[in-house]
């Protein structure tokens, strides 16, 4: 399954430079993608699927579909 992946913040260099789609196994769940990125404190990162948030409880349950945009960013407070 091909997915679009965007990663913001201090760890964004962990992604391949071109912003194309990345091939993942068909049963991939969002939590697994964050694990694969080996992010420090990754369990606290925010995950959006097509702009909509995934709750902490659901990150290993939600099914993904070909072409989904997965957005991952670090937890941040304040601005």
């Amino acid at each position: 399954m091909k997915l679009k992946l965007e990663l913001f913040g201090a760890h964004s260099e962990k992604l391949p430079r071109d912003e194309g789609e990345i091939e993942f196994p068909d049963e991939t769940v969002p939590g697994k993608i964050v694990d694969w990125l080996e992010l420090k404190d990754g369990d606290q990162f925010v995950i959006l699927i097509n702009g909509h948030p995934v709750s902490l409880e659901d990150r290993y349950k939600v099914k993904l579909t070909e072409g989904d945009l997965i957005t991952v960013f670090p937890p941040m407070e304040g601005g």
Binding site: G9, A10, H11, L39, K40, D41, G42, Q44, F45, P74, P75, M76, E77
Partner: peptide
């Protein structure tokens, strides 16, 4: 912490 990394960078 990742939060510090992010704020610092």
């Amino acid at each position: 912490s990742a939060r510090r990394d992010s704020l610092s960078t």
